[in-house]
């Protein structure tokens, strides 16, 4: 049988999927062991026990200096920034995107500008944001917005423009005015693509969050990673990276499930991604 026709069973699929994870873990453990055999003080590849101890210290022991649980504090601070940033981007994308996609005059006005704006490398705006908004929360949130909103807006505008002409004619023959067409056709029909845009936007959002936190913050996951880097504290950095990855994964799945459950009509057959 040809390779392209050999399909793994359900169990085999899970096993195969777990394989690369297990391989990386194994290779890491061996490498760590080897380095520790040579130098028990090695900091570059901490053992899994050392990382567990670091997590215990960061997440489950109150900090000696402040009495708070550092890792949760960092998590909350970062989630708040990315949450507000993505919320602002989502609202902007929905409002501007639908306006651009639905109303030819607004499209003519805004499309070139949004297109040009989306080409600015967001990270180069960061110094400007710090100068304008100071080193507080606003600049970090603004960076996430600058980095995600233009692309999300273009996605929503495209989704709006992709609504078939037949449907627009039909709803007009049902007597709808422009605003009703927005509320009853464009918004609901664009929602699946908006959720897709949020999922896609979260990827750069994390990059900009960590970048902004690395440069100026007092707490946050990115801040902590760059802080402990000075002490070569790989035993903290690696669990933090894993933790960020887990949060990102959970958020992505949550939006996917939201779309599946809340917008059943858009997931008729085959599902997506």
């Amino acid at each position: 049988m040809r390779l392209i026709n050999q399909k793994p069973s359900r169990i085999a699929r899970y096993a195969l999927g777990a394989l690369p994870f297990a391989a990386v873990l194994l290779i890491y453990s061996v490498a760590s062991k080897l380095r520790h055999m040579e130098n028990p003080q090695d900091r570059l590849l901490p053992s899994l026990q050392q990382m567990a101890a670091a997590v215990e210290r960061m997440a489950f022991t109150p900090s000696k200096r402040t009495g708070e649980y550092t890792m949760w504090l960092d998590t909350l601070a970062s989630l708040e920034r990315i949450g507000i940033g993505m919320l602002v981007s989502t609202v902007l994308a929905l409002v501007l995107g639908i306006a651009m996609g639905a109303i030819p005059r607004i499209r003519a006005t805004l499309a070139p500008f949004v297109g040009a704006f989306s080409l600015i490398p967001p990270i180069t705006v960061l110094p400007i944001l710090f100068i304008v908004f100071g080193l507080g929360e606003t600049a970090k949130i603004a960076l996430i917005v600058v980095g995600t909103a233009p692309v999300m807006t273009r996605t929503v505008a495209q989704a709006t423009a992709d609504v078939p002409d037949e449907l627009l004619v039909k709803v007009q023959t049902l007597g709808a005015n422009s605003w009703q067409i927005v509320t009853r056709v464009f918004v609901p029909m664009v929602l699946p693509r908006l959720i897709g845009a949020i999922r896609m936007g979260l990827v750069p959002a994390w990059i900009f969050l960590v970048s902004a936190e690395a440069i100026a913050a007092e707490q946050g996951l990115g801040y902590r990673i760059f802080l402990v880097r000075r002490y070569l504290a790989m035993d903290v950095i690696l669990p933090y990276v894993a933790w960020i990855t887990i949060i990102a994964y959970v958020l992505d799945r949550a939006f996917y499930l939201l779309s599946r459950k809340g917008l059943r009509w858009a997931h008729g057959e085959g599902g997506a991604l």
Partner: peptide
């Protein structure tokens, strides 16, 4: 288009959502 003229197309005539 106005409600005095109803229409049915070959496809995309109903609202999927």
């Amino acid at each position: 288009p106005m409600p005095d003229r109803g229409v049915v197309f070959q496809k995309y005539s109903v609202f999927a959502h």
